[in-house]
Design a protein around this nucleic acid. Sequence first.
DNA 1: CCATTAAGAGTGT
DNA 2: ACACTCTTAATGG
Length: 252
Amino acid sequence: MPVSNQHSTIIDSRDTTLPITACSTCGNARCLIKKNLGSTIVNTFTQHRKEIRCKKGQQFIMEGAAVTGLFFLLKGTVKVIRTGLHGKEQIVRFAKEGEVIGHRGFGTEESYPIGAIALEDSLLCYFSKDLLQEVLRTEPSFTYDLMLFYANELSKSEVKVKSLSQMTVRERVIDTLLYVNRKFGQEHGFMAQVLSRREYADYAGTTEEQVIRVLSALKKEQLIVTKGKRIGIVNLQLLKNEISEHNFYLDS
DNA sequence: CCATTAAGAGTGT
DNA sequence: ACACTCTTAATGG
């Protein structure tokens, strides 16, 4: 939940491990705001930006809470969730630096349709709804960038519907592995973002046990390696081949 | 530094 | 899904 002023944080302020940045000095090239800093109104807008620090595991958007604004992820990673019927958490997507969070609550909705939880200590930029609407009305290039983002998100969510409804468990786990790999990449032979098996399951729409079983099968088949929580992809092409019939447009 | 504990990974039913 | 074991990370003296 957003805080009321720039200096307070929703977490313990003793934590000084994360830097405080202004848009002008922010190194996040991916950010839509940063990209449009050339515009005067966007520039003015950034002065009303609020900063929110989030500890690992902390939820900063509550499902169903009133929409007050929009978040940009400055640093860290976040999972966007939606609570299913039996209290099961469905991970809608993962977000990394520069991505927008909470955008779906924006237009006509009065409450957030999703929850968002930090996967690691994260730094968020927060912009109030009113302010943002003003900018969107007056700055076409910014609006255009945001529209591209919306279109992209929609397309991804359509792909996900298909994945959940038509793929087998094994295929969904593989799909999830490829997604995480696309999003976060590999580092030292393992996924750069460590996720629990439970989180893989919540994204793939299965149970933790199923994920563990598929993973150990893939391990036996030498397609992946594991070390504790860490998962490394050994044979990317073979994994892609398995779901190629579902994702014929998949990037090389 | 080692011992205890808690969390999460695996596995069999 | 549940019960259980094993491994690893966190904690505290």
